[in-house]
Amino acid sequence: MNGVFSAFTGVLDSLLPAASPLLLASLGALVSEHAGVLAVFMDGAINFGGFVCIAVTGATGSPLAGVAAAIALTVLLLFAVSRFTERTGANPFLTALSVNLLSSGATSLSSSALFGTRGTVALADFSGLDLRLWYFPASLAAAAAVSFFLQRTLAGISLRAAGSAPEALAARGGDPGKYRTLSWCIAAFFAACAGSMLTLDLGAWVPNVSAGRGWTALAAVYLGYKNPWLCAAAVLAFAGAEYATNILQGLGRMPATIILGLPYALALVVFALVPQRKQ
């Protein structure tokens, strides 16, 4: 009995921290979806945030500065892209996609310029943060905050209106564009947190460190019916599936390269089967 229990807590110990970046990312995507501009840039923004975090942590020696810089720069980037999108009437889907492409170009360029490599950048003598225990509670607290924001604040209500009926919001004197920008800034904030969590946990930046989490996060939004708490449940299901495949890989039953495709395949199944907002 004791053995079963400890095995169970063992699973939870590795599952919950692993699920946390995904949960943060899906909360960001959720807010953007409510504003009607799904953040398809999540994957790129996570990578970008993760890179900035490692670069600044490496330079200053302070992970706190790293996280702060990651948040500041990612939010600034998406703020700029969103303002540009609004000002020029561009297609937000395309400009969001461009963030993914620019992120991969920019991180490889800066990595090569700053560290002379396009591969892994490890922090020298970094012992990691002893915060793993707090990842999941913190992410749940974030889910609570997002839920409160969307349901109980006037800005949250306006943001939802910006997504489903922008003309109605405009008629009440609200600026839908402003709320769309806000939603992308919030998404960028969560992406940066998720990216920092991933890289600080590894103590290194690895190209494409998000490994498709930005896309799985989008799937979790729909699987969770756009509700923060259900999203958290969906994320746990995803993390469980990932955990299982990791075990399969460990047993040598599945080639490592194919595992890279699994998050996408899983997200694909969700998108195919869960009803979505009409595009």
Partner: peptide
């Protein structure tokens, strides 16, 4: 409530 001033709804 949409469009009314303030923070909390």
């Amino acid at each position: 409530l949409l469009g009314s001033p303030g923070f909390l709804a």
